[in-house]
Amino acid sequence: METLVIEGTQKTPSVNFDASKGVLEIKGRSIPENSIEFYRPLVEWLEKYKNNPAPKTEVHVQLEYFNTSSSKCILDLFKKLEDIVKAQHEVVINWYYEEDDEDMLEAGEDYESIIKVPFKMVEVID
């Protein structure tokens, strides 16, 4: 399965989904006016990946900012990961937040309470 690589922009994050390693990374800012278009290829990639995932999938979400339009798309991605967990594969979501950024930590905790995938909150110290 091909690695999904998307360069980051001022309003959209960089993406690196590597099926062979089972490492999925989203980094940067996610503040497009309409996030559906941006996230569609990510959801489609995960739709295929979940049929034959790596023994362990490590997800790294390191967002500086994201808007509410993106928040629903991110939840859609996490729901695909939930399917992988239901199929008895190991998945962990590492949710990064900057020191003192309680809003970002809380956003991660919101997802953790909705999605049945293990979360690890990772504080990034400058």
Partner: peptide, 12 residues
């Protein structure tokens, strides 16, 4: 977040 779908223009 969990129950409402995004509108076509991306508003939620």
């Amino acid at each position: 977040l969990n129950h409402q779908k995004l509108s076509a223009r991306g508003g939620g």
